[in-house]
């Protein structure tokens, strides 16, 4: 891995020098008390110690609502048109490792057999600059799902703080390499050693053990105990970097035209699996919560060899009913 030293003013230069008609920049910014990824923010925050944003950046790769095609009826003829795709590239600056890692995880489901070009185009059109993380609270557990503060999974370029004014820039992917050659050609090579903070995992668990337990415990009181407290909203799924369920609906502009859209959807909604006949295989919150945990730690791992979770802890921080998925998995793993 090629490594360079980059100064904070060189980062500032990069932001101002990227041609605005060709590049959008997505970076964390502060909104009141909380952080958010903001598009073309004039005050990007490059701070390892910042907490994760309220909501992950998946919206820029898997939008909350996306047009799949337009339909138009003229006389009795129907015509379908493809949506136009933005040509602009996206630079994600200072992505948390637990956000960056979600892209290769999501790529598995969007590319097994049938390839979702909407997701793929957006990922191919982006460059992710990850930033080593120095934050942790009682909701985080990235190390338990095979990641860590300095994990470069999903990043094209990775920054590690070296001192107050400098970062070590590591080139992770070919895309990152081309980006550095094009926009940061004059960096000095780094040959020293990096020091980083150790992550304290409050709820260490073994995800392989968890998977086996879930597979063997489809019926268990843990699902009912959580299901009765869960109020059945989709906060957890929508702030999550890896949740990817969606709905497909038609929206008319008038009687003769409209578009088919893909919208975020979530397994916690009762109507999600309800048949037109009224039959519902997951007809209680208990079953729906079991589905969420099982999908993340058993089904996805079984199918794709990846845990559908990066341990970012957002679902827990925001849960209106105070449910902590990490605690559930921790207790499962320690049974």
């Amino acid at each position: 891995m090629k490594e360079f030293i980059i100064n904070t003013d060189e980062i500032a230069n990069l932001i101002s020098s990227l041609p605005a008609d060709k590049w959008d920049i997505l970076a964390p910014a502060k909104d009141g008390k909380s952080f958010d990824y903001v598009l073309s923010s004039d005050k990007p925050i490059i701070n390892s110690e910042a907490p994760p944003s309220k909501i992950s950046f998946k919206e820029y790769f898997f939008p909350k609502s996306e047009t799949l095609f337009y339909y138009k009826r003229e006389a009795n003829e129907i015509s379908l048109t493809e949506p136009k795709f933005a040509e602009k590239k996206l630079l994600v600056l200072a992505a948390k490792p637990c956000d960056a890692a979600s892209l290769p995880i999501l790529s598995k489901v969007f590319n097994w057999d049938y390839k979702d070009e909407f997701f793929n185009k957006r990922v191919n059109n982006s460059v992710i600059i990850g930033l080593s993380c120095a934050y942790s609270d009682e909701s985080c557990f990235c190390t338990s799902v095979g990641l860590d503060r300095n994990n470069t999974k999903g990043s094209d370029i990775f920054l590690t703080p070296f001192n107050d004014k400098q970062y070590v820039l590591s080139v992770v992917s070919d895309k990152g390499d081309s980006f550095v050659k094009e926009f940061l050609p004059n960096l000095t090579e780094f040959t020293g050693t990096k020091e980083t903070k150790e992550f304290i995992d409050n709820k260490p668990f073994d995800y392989k053990k968890t998977k086996d337990w879930i597979a063997a415990n489809f019926e268990n009181k843990i699902w009912a105990e959580t299901g009765e407290v869960c109020i059945g909203c989709a906060q957890c799924a929508f702030v999550c970097p890896t949740c990817h369920c969606f709905d497909i609906v038609d929206e008319n502009c008038d009687l003769n035209c409209g578009r088919r859209i893909k919208n975020w959807d979530a397994c916690q909604f009762g109507v999600f699996t309800k048949h037109a006949s009224g039959h519902n295989p997951r007809n209680s919150q208990e079953k729906r919560y079991r589905q969420r945990v099982s999908h993340k730690f058993d089904y996805y791992y079984e199918k794709f060899g990846e845990v559908l979770c990066t341990g970012c802890g957002r679902c827990t921080r925001g849960c209106p009913a105070g449910i902590d998925i990490g605690e559930i998995v921790f207790s499962i793993s320690n049974q």
């Binding site: 909501i55 909350k64 109020i231 059945g232 909203c233 989709a234 906060q235 799924a237 929508f238 919208n263 975020w264 979530a266 909604f269 209106p320 009913a321």
Partner: peptide
């Protein structure tokens, strides 16, 4: 709004 319906469920 992301239509998570947390406002309704809570």
């Amino acid at each position: 709004c992301i239509k998570c319906y947390a406002c309704r469920q809570v």
